[in-house]
Amino acid sequence: MRRHAGFTLATVVLALMTLAALAPGLLTGGDPGGADALKALEGPSADHWFGTDANGRDVFTRIVYGAGPSLLAGLGATALAVVAGTALGLLAALGGRVLDELVMRLVEVVLALPTLLLALLVITVTGPGTVNVILAIALYTAPGYARLVRAQTMVIKRAGFVEAAVSLGLSRGRIIWRHVLPNAFEPLLVLATIEVGTALVAAASLSYLGLGPQPPAPEWGAMLSAGRDYFSVAWWIAVFPGVAITLTVLSITVAGRRLQRRVA
């Protein structure tokens, strides 16, 4: 029963975050860029639920508007990694032994290197920015999906229905698309759901380090980064964006684990 309550709560949080990402104007009437020097660093009050930052901007409004870019980074990186990883996994499983060895060794090497360092290496090369952060995270998460898809495909390709499809003379692409992929989809979806949370944290960390969206963008990690000099006098700047990140990730993990249990 308690597990059920956790899942319900997680769904509510995720629904709210999605609403904030798609239509921030519905949740707040404020302007995320509306600076007002006279109202700088005010604590939480009825007017400003989460206080104001050093430029007098409403922290609650910026968190609501920050949901979009923050969720986008996590979802974007995961989507990109799933697509790239699936392609690599299929290549390894169906492309013959040499290709299989090559791809899987590559996957092993990337999985052995520290994830954040790889991301930092990519960003040194590409420069900072939202798209580059997504690319960097996708690069080191893709191998995990490649490994999963390869393992799944290895099993599926020996199944009777694939043999039947081959003997019916269906094209290779059609067999992969209609018969192999749908059967590999469920475990892929479970892994991806849980990994969205991890990707979101990674993106927020990189933003915090000043390598993601640049100010004045209202992204959660970037908000913490911009408020850094004021943590000693205004705790609310340090607390609320982090709460938003943690709540979102927590909800994604809870939802993902439930999905995992249902599939398993």
């Binding site: 949370g197 960390s205 913490l224 000693s232």
Partner: peptide, 15 residues
């Protein structure tokens, strides 16, 4: 597992 390390650090520092 859900709480980002950089935020834990910020919280510890602030508190």
């Amino acid at each position: 597992v859900s709480i980002p390390t950089f935020w834990t650090a910020i919280l510890l520092l602030t508190v």
